[in-house]
Amino acid sequence: MTDRDLVPLGAFAQNAWSVSAAEVSLVRARDAARPVTLGDRDRKVTLDIGRTAIVVVDMQNDFCHPQGWLAHIGVDVAPCRAPIAPLQALLPMLREAGVPVIWLNWGNRPDRANLPPSVLHVYDPDGRSTGIGKPLPGNGAHVLEEGSWAAAVVDELAPAPGDIAVSKYRMTGFQDTELEAILRNLDVTTVLFAGVNADQCVLNTLTDAVARGFDAVLLEDCSATSSPAFCMEATLYNVRQCYGFVCDGADLRAALEAGA
């Protein structure tokens, strides 16, 4: 190779220039569309799996582990663990198909310098509770703090090499984060959403994605909430009515198998 040969410049091939000392090409390589068709009730939904990513929200110890923060404050975390098995089955197939897997977890700064009182108050209403950044009585891990056991993905869903981790600091994963820039760099148009809580952080991130022009698909069997059942029902209704589509991870696995 000489200094006149073009080499890729960019974090991802989907959005890379080709450059040399003598030339710059702004032409991005685009693969042919790879359509995959799913069902949303009585309607077919076809997406381009080659321009799709999955965002897995908050499948972390504080929300899904029996010794995590939610369990400590008396919340039954069994519903939050329901997506583990479907995701264990789906994620390897998505990786094999070249679909980026993005883990979006609460992971706050230790000094909480970017968190206003309105966020802190939700989890620490009297200023004396085990809120964000405080140690869990059981193991001392700091609640929702980046780098702590509390903020780590549960062991059953250990991220694979090549997966992407994004820390968030609000109910939405787009505020103050690099999530949108990563999705744009990946040339993604459709985002699959999974994780917990479906009616809170998942829904907030999904609606923000739609507001930014992404197509959104909520994977019902890969999502859950510890809230009352009517909250999940309202979430499914609102996603279908206003924001995107509700499909099933099992159907996606079957479609990928058929395509393979």
Rank of each mutant, 00 (worst) to 15 (best):
L183N: 13
E146V: 08
A194T: 05
V191I: 15
K134H: 12
A152T: 00
V188H: 04
A211P: 08
T189I: 03
D215A: 15
Q175H: 15
N185R: 12
L183P: 06
A194K: 02
V191T: 04
G131D: 11
V166W: 01
A152Y: 00
V153T: 15
R212D: 05
V210R: 15
E178V: 08
D208H: 13
I182W: 00
A141S: 15
H121I: 09
F214T: 00
F174W: 11
C201D: 03
A158T: 14
D208L: 11
D215T: 15
A216C: 15
P125W: 06
S148R: 10
V143L: 08
L203K: 09
F214P: 00
Q175R: 14
V154W: 09
T172S: 15
E156H: 09
L186Q: 06
D155P: 02
L206R: 00
G140Y: 05
P117L: 09
D163S: 05
V153A: 08
G138M: 07
A211T: 13
V166P: 00
G138E: 11
A165H: 15
N197S: 14
D126K: 07
N139L: 10
A151C: 02
G173H: 06
R212P: 00
R128I: 05
I164S: 02
V202P: 02
V188S: 02
V196F: 09
T189P: 02
A181Y: 08
V154T: 14
E145Q: 14
Y169K: 07
D187S: 14
L136S: 10
L120N: 04
V166L: 01
N185W: 02
G140H: 06
S167C: 13
V196Y: 06
T205G: 12
G140W: 06
S129A: 14
T130L: 03
D126W: 06
A194F: 07
L157P: 01
L120P: 00
L206S: 05
N185T: 13
I132A: 07
L206K: 07
D187A: 15
L157M: 00
H142R: 14
R128A: 08
A151I: 01
P137V: 06
W149S: 03
V122T: 10
I182R: 06
A198C: 10
N197T: 14
T177L: 09
M171N: 11
R128M: 09
N197W: 10
G195Y: 03
L157Q: 01
D208V: 10
T130P: 01
V191S: 06
E178N: 14
L120I: 12
V122W: 05
E180K: 14
A151M: 04
L218D: 11
G127P: 01
